[in-house]
Amino acid sequence: MVDARGQSCPIPVVMTRRVLEKETPARLEVLVDAQVAVENVTRCARSLGYQVTAEPQGADFKLTLTK
């Protein structure tokens, strides 16, 4: 689980990418709190071959990345 809520651009992407590249997990959950972070993390994960689903969770968003 990556908790990137409240982080400035592009830190949610940097945090997610670091985990994806280091550990290459089959599944990773990422929490963000801004639509722009949803878009950026989604683009980054897709470019690394992951499928992404996003769902609202209160005022935040939970992204589920699967390979």
Binding site: C9, P10, R17, C44, S47
Partner: peptide, 19 residues
């Protein structure tokens, strides 16, 4: 559109995203 002058060059070099 999230337009950002710094973000353009940053993303191109950091994550190879050219949006």
């Amino acid at each position: 559109s999230r337009l950002c002058m710094a973000g353009g060059l940053r993303d191109a070099f950091l994550i190879q995203d050219f949006t």
